[in-house]
Nucleic acid binder design. Sequence first.
DNA 1: CTGAACACGTGAGTC
DNA 2: TGACTCACGTGTTCA
Lengths: 229, 229
Amino acid sequence: MENISDEYTHCWETNTFFQAEDLQGYLDEEIPTHDSSSQDGTQSSLMANRNIVSERNRRKKLNERLYALRSIVPNITKMHKESIVEDAIDYIQKLQEEERKIQAEISDLESAETSSKSTISEFDHDETFSSSPKRLTNESFYDSRGSRSSPIEVLELRVSSMGEKTVVISLTCSKRTNTMVKLCEIFESLNLKIISANIAAFSDWVLKTVFVQVIHLSLSLSLTTYSHT
Amino acid sequence: MENISDEYTHCWETNTFFQAEDLQGYLDEEIPTHDSSSQDGTQSSLMANRNIVSERNRRKKLNERLYALRSIVPNITKMHKESIVEDAIDYIQKLQEEERKIQAEISDLESAETSSKSTISEFDHDETFSSSPKRLTNESFYDSRGSRSSPIEVLELRVSSMGEKTVVISLTCSKRTNTMVKLCEIFESLNLKIISANIAAFSDWVLKTVFVQVIHLSLSLSLTTYSHT
DNA sequence: CTGAACACGTGAGTC
DNA sequence: TGACTCACGTGTTCA
């Protein structure tokens, strides 16, 4: 009997928890079971022992979990159980907030604003496409960093291939604040191999011409997104 | 005395916790303090009472925290304390993994081929300046939106006036991800009247030439920030 | 009736 | 000293 065999060895490694309770745990390892000389029989004390060891394991498990929780939460100040859970809560809320922000950013990029002006969504295609031009995936035409500026109003988009491995993209849009920045962001995000890019501004218009070198499949995919050439 | 005033009313709302312990809590609210007829004096029992109520509050607080933790973790299956912490751990790890993935994605987009080159801080000046060229205010050459991409490495900056109201800015820098974006941001932030801008990329370099129309004083100020022309 | 899960009171240790 | 936190053993309820 009484081989309770509680090792009591985890103890939060950074002490502050390692207190006399462990010592006590070692001492009365042989459970206060009114051992021997108990007239009420062995069964009740045996039950009590089982309950004790079970309860020990329960606590141990919970502490281990708490310890594991503590270990994955950065910047934990206090070692108190309550503070551990508290910090975990704060941390989770921080992560959730962060994720929520990202989600909002994404949905913001997708939905954008249905403002009075014609946005790129009103831009269907133009006749210069060789065949069945696709509608632009307008997510690409919004600020990828979540700035609040108005979307780009595209007047004309021309995609034509020049030789085997070169594509010329010609884009005309209205000149607004950060228009150039956003244009550059778009092309940058496409991971194209840009040979040369030219931006010209006159009166209210911005014209951008880009020579792109076709390298691998992803480019073709990106381009077909725009024109199904 | 015995106004312990433990409300015992939270009880995890979804029961499974609301058990006889609460009843017990209500019943012996008046603490088993050998009340009255205690010859060992009121002080020790008073201390014990304080300890008891303090411990009650401690447990209550911890349970509240645990409950709060449970409430912000989605998809909690079990109500057991251990499972609560366990699910919280899994959830945190999921969020961390998600964030890690996003971070990797971002840094993947930004770094691309970020060969360890020298940065703008190593750029002192160059001889093409007409007189006493100032060091670039390199704050302008970092991403104004706080992204973690590497700064722009400027190789050559040439500012020369063309006629009375026109200035030509020629800038050569190493080609990295978002270099064009950042260049555009810089020029955009300067509120210049840009007549024409040209960006060309070849091998590892990016060359940008901008024709700027001089309108008012602010432009001169902006330009003198860069070259003291 | 056995095991699991809980709150409780208690003694002990720390700051 | 007092105000903490902690682990422990116990009694209870529920599936």
